[in-house]
């Protein structure tokens, strides 16, 4: 019971991170293409300025929760995915610092460089996140102790001894890139005005089409790479509601974007991300990290979970702490609701 609960609590943290940091990553990707003038760029950055580091906290809080609830998984996955995680850290550093520097430096050529770094790091991060999830879904060559170490790439095939990058995980990366860029476009159409708002709304259509194609491809690729992903769905057919939710939220994005209801379209995109991630988690459950070698060294919930006192105490403070956290998030977003101000003094 505790296992089931903590599995989904960690999943909630991951969804929270993807939905929130997702839009500012998407804005990072998009601002390279959509923005024409310095005023527009200011408006774009002002739309994420007050919230992006708070959004990143979900990653830290989620990582910490994973750490104490499933220490074996944390130890195994973080050391096994050593190289890509370090690259993710470097990208997070470059992204955060370039965004901050931009507020302070008013020399055009440096600004152009910083904008480039910010956009490039944002794009690569979305790809790495998608590939990371795909790595977990595909499985890794675990040894009997529950450890592994993956090189960045081998022969690009998701076989017994894969690399971090193979054709399957690259698809995962592309899904994340497109989904989060779309997510960012909807955020921009919600938070900016004038030409920029119009351009953000227009770019949704092509992104939406690509996302549909990639969603379908990734679904079949996942079934091909790990057929067991479907077991839970057939065991509890009611859970086919999740793929239905994916389709419905995709349709809703399109509908509301056309009707110029950016808030509803953005929330539909949040739901899309939620259903995609929840669907992936449900495909895994109760496995946390599958073994790709077929030697049944899967890291399962039962094997990785912490002791009862840890989890009981954890549940008590987690509920209180996250209720508070959600309260701050709602409060801050409500203070900054409405269109972002390109002329805001910032700091």
């Amino acid at each position: 019971m505790m296992g089931f609960l903590w599995f989904w609590l960690v999943a909630v943290m991951i969804v929270g991170y993807v939905v929130l940091d997702g839009f500012d990553l998407g804005v990072g990707v998009l601002h390279l293409f959509l923005v024409r003038t310095e005023t527009e760029r200011r408006a774009t950055l002002a739309s994420i300025g007050p919230v992006w580091d708070g959004n990143e906290v979900w990653l830290l809080a989620g990582g910490g929760t994973l750490y104490f609830a499933f220490p074996l998984l944390y130890a195994s996955a973080f050391s096994g995915f050593y190289l890509p995680l370090m690259i993710v850290l470097w990208l997070l550093i470059l992204r955060g610092v370039s965004l901050e520097l931009r507020n302070h430096i008013d020399v055009g050529v440096w600004r152009a460089l910083l904008d480039g770094v910010f956009g490039f790091a944002s794009a690569l991060l979305t790809i790495f996140y998608g590939a990371a999830l795909a790595n977990v879904l595909r499985g890794v060559p675990l040894n009997a102790d529950g450890y592994f170490f993956l090189p960045l790439w081998t022969n690009w095939q998701p076989g017994v001894l894969p690399g971090i990058l193979d054709w399957y995980t690259v698809i995962g990366g592309l899904v994340a890139l497109v989904a989060l860029t779309l997510h960012g476009a909807l955020w921009l159409s919600l938070k900016t005005s004038g030409d920029l708002e119009q351009r953000a709304r227009t770019v949704v259509s092509p992104l939406w089409l690509i996302l549909i194609a990639l969603t379908v491809v990734s679904l079949f690729a996942t079934i091909a790479v790990r057929p067991a992903s479907l077991d839970n769905y057939f065991r509890y057919p009611v859970t086919f509601i999740v793929p239905v939710g994916v389709v419905a939220s995709l349709a809703a994005i399109r509908l509301w974007n056309r009707k110029r209801q950016p808030l509803k379209a953005f929330l539909a995109s949040c739901l899309y991300l939620f259903f995609m991630l929840a669907g992936a988690c449900w495909g895994l459950y109760p496995v946390l990290l599958p073994d790709s070698t077929g030697a049944a060294n899967d890291i399962t919930l039962a094997r990785a979970i912490s002791g009862p006192h840890t989890l009981a105490v954890g549940l008590a403070w987690w509920l209180v702490g996250m209720a508070l956290a959600v309260g701050y998030v709602v409060f801050v977003y409500s203070r900054f609701k409405g269109k972002a101000d390109a002329h805001a003094e910032g700091h």
């Binding site: 929760t65 104490f68 105490v313």
Partner: peptide, 8 residues
Amino acid sequence: GQPLAMEG
């Protein structure tokens, strides 16, 4: 892991 998560 617990105090680390609580920090976040």
